[in-house]
């Protein structure tokens, strides 16, 4: 296959994968990523296989700590169920610093090799132990907290029961 043809195929595949990342919906396999954390080592989605993951995509927030601290407590309280909770931070404004939290704050930047950005932020993704997106809750994090909490508890219970049956 000639170079231009190969380039065309690769470009098509790249665009398809980007489109997939942008338009993720429940039931889809979540593309892998490896993102640096503000403290500790980088986190990789494929290394979390076998554990339920709550991925909290933060928007351009200036009062983040107040609105997301409940999410942190929620994730920590469900750690015993094997839940991994990660915040994902991305900001176009370099002066805007990520809030300091106890949960890993993953830092997206475009120059990373194995990373993608979910466009519809803020959002909460509940990713099953086999890497599929089970629930996607879009919109303001403070307003959606109740819905996230209810969905998470039910989902974790279903996930656990599912694993016990298997």
């Amino acid at each position: 296959m000639g170079y231009p043809a190969r380039l065309l195929v690769l470009t098509t595949l790249l665009l398809a994968s980007l489109a997939q990342a942008d338009s993720l919906k429940p039931g889809d396999k979540v593309p892998d990523f490896t993102l640096p954390a503000n403290k500790g080592l980088a986190q990789s989605l494929h290394e979390a296989t076998g554990s339920p993951v709550m991925l909290i995509w933060l928007g351009e927030c200036y009062d983040c700590p107040e609105s997301i601290v409940r999410y942190q407590i929620l994730a920590e309280s469900q750690k015993i169920e094997g839940l991994k909770g990660w915040f994902v931070w991305s900001s176009e404004n370099p002066d805007n610093k990520p809030p300091k939290m106890r949960l890993p704050m993953l830092m997206f930047s475009p120059e990373l090799n194995n990373a993608w950005l979910f466009e519809e932020r803020p959002a909460v993704m509940l990713i099953s132990p086999d890497g599929h997106l089970d629930h996607l809750i879009l919109g303001d994090l403070a307003e959606n907290y109740q819905e996230v909490e209810t969905t998470l508890m039910r989902w974790l219970s279903d996930t656990r029961d599912g694993y016990l049956v298997e």
Partner: peptide
């Protein structure tokens, strides 16, 4: 460029 994870 490479980022190291806990497992690595």
């Amino acid at each position: 460029q490479h980022l190291y994870t806990e497992q690595q």
